[in-house]
């Protein structure tokens, strides 16, 4: 699993990346009440707004951590956004994206680096 400075995690399986927000981010946001997911087949450049996660008093953009095409979204979040709080780094995943350029993962942090990053 790789991490971004925007507190997203990316897990690569072949050329498909699963994306979600980190435990740290979920804690910071508080009780999550709604997740707006992209449409399947939507195309994004790295850094585009791909989804929105909302708590009662805040809304945060989720950026596409890599460029590519959405292949699948976590529809369970529609009825159970609280899953992002309960299990952010597994069941609370947001979407899967088919990478157009795997080298975009190169600059991302590993777990130790991310830990150091959030303690900074």
């Amino acid at each position: 699993m790789k991490y971004t400075e925007d507190h997203e995690w990316v897990r690569l399986d072949g050329d498909i990346a699963t994306v979600g927000i980190t435990t740290h981010a979920a804690q910071q946001l508080g009780d999550i009440v709604f997740v707006e997911l992209p449409e399947v087949d939507a195309e994004f450049e790295k850094g585009d707004d791909a989804a929105v996660v909302e708590s009662v008093k805040a809304a945060s953009e989720i950026y596409a951590p890599v460029s590519g095409t959405i292949t699948k979204i976590n529809e369970d979040l529609e009825d159970a956004p609280e899953m992002v709080n309960a299990d952010p780094q597994a069941a609370g995943w947001f979407f899967q994206i088919k990478l157009s350029d795997t080298s975009e993962l190169d600059g991302m942090m590993d777990e130790a680096a991310y830990k150091a990053f959030i303690e900074d």
């Binding site: 009780d31 009440v33 709604f34 909302e54 009662v56 609280e82």
Partner: peptide, 9 residues
């Protein structure tokens, strides 16, 4: 106090 999380979810 009212439960604003439930209202929004």
């Amino acid at each position: 106090r009212l439960d604003e999380t439930q209202a929004a979810r």
